[in-house]
């Protein structure tokens, strides 16, 4: 599949999801007591967006090389647009660490879960030595505790798991 086709498919998906959003907005009511209802504005925007994304999908598929090419002067950004040279495993580990943090933040509390996420990145994505990784993680956790909890008074929530052993 060529790059322009991938883009066109994504834009098409966007168009469909926007159309669905517009459909949902219709349910919020378009007009009420002589005034615009809760759904009018989002419905208008969503359908407009769906139309634009649909048109753009067709245009991208047709004329990727001529018109929609990255503007001049963008060569410094070229690597970001190309698929070549992406290390998928590394990217995936980063993504996993983000997801791990989100899933465990409530249950394990900020310190354990963000420490785990940091360790995942350092050990598996960046291949840092265990000792170094542990040191950096500890330093980071201490720094965020010192800055946020002590200095700025941000209260981190107690981890949900804590209530099991200390009622």
């Amino acid at each position: 599949m060529t790059r322009s086709r991938v883009e066109a498919v994504c834009l098409l998906l966007l168009a469909v999801s926007m159309a669905v959003t517009g459909w949902v907005s219709l349910g919020y009511g378009l007009w009420r007591d002589g005034l615009p209802g809760a759904g009018l504005y989002p419905a208008v925007i969503a359908f407009l967006c769906a139309a634009c994304a649909g048109v753009e999908a067709v245009r991208t598929q047709k004329g990727y090389n001529s018109e929609a090419e990255a503007p001049a002067g963008a060569d410094d950004e070229a690597p970001e647009w190309s698929v070549h040279g992406i290390v998928w495993s590394k990217l995936a580990i980063y993504a996993v660490s983000f997801v791990v943090l989100v899933l465990t933040f409530d249950f394990l509390g900020f310190f354990v879960s963000s420490g785990t996420a940091t360790l995942i990145i350092l050990l598996f994505a960046e291949r840092v030595g265990i000792a170094k990784a542990a040191f950096v993680t500890a330093a980071l956790l201490f720094a965020s505790y010192a800055i946020f909890e002590i200095l700025l008074g941000v209260h981190f929530p107690a981890p949900a798991i804590a209530q099991f052993w200390n009622p």
Partner: peptide, 24 residues
């Protein structure tokens, strides 16, 4: 090095996002 910068930025973003409204 980015290897250390990335988790630092990430952690500070997480705390930052949480601290705005104390909102998981």
């Amino acid at each position: 090095p980015f290897a250390y910068l990335a988790p630092t930025i990430f952690m500070f973003c997480v705390v930052g996002a949480y601290s705005i409204r104390y909102n998981l």
